[in-house]
């Protein structure tokens, strides 16, 4: 392989790698858990309501999520203002 074909192979790899990397890697061992974060302590976006990390306005917002260790979301219990308890959810919680 001469220098030019080697260079083209590298260019091909670089472009393929860029295409493969459209979605950034997520941390392993975590899952998005909805409905358990305190106001201002959510990790990122939810459907409407707020735009990103730390911007949820109410405690235990059903649409705001927090990253938690994988497998622990469904067993994370929170106590709501009305005294009832609710587990976290892997999907936004419907009203």
């Amino acid at each position: 392989m001469n220098r030019r074909t080697a260079g083209l192979a590298i260019a091909g790899s670089l472009l393929s790698a860029l295409a493969l990397s459209a979605a950034p890697a997520a941390a392993e061992g975590t899952e998005k858990c909805y409905g358990i974060s305190l106001a201002g302590q959510n990790d990122c976006a939810s459907a409407g309501g707020n735009s990103c990390a730390g911007t949820s306005k109410i405690d235990y917002d059903k649409a705001a999520w927090k990253l938690v260790p994988a497998g622990s979301c469904a067993t994370t219990m929170v106590t709501l203002p009305d005294g009832s308890t609710r587990a976290g959810s892997l999907e936004p919680i419907g009203s």
Binding site: L14, S16, A17, L20, S21, A23, P24
Partner: peptide, 13 residues
């Protein structure tokens, strides 16, 4: 495999 190595670097930020 250069592609996979670069993809890991890119995806990992």
């Amino acid at each position: 495999d250069l592609t996979l190595t670069l993809a890991a670097l890119f995806r990992g930020g």
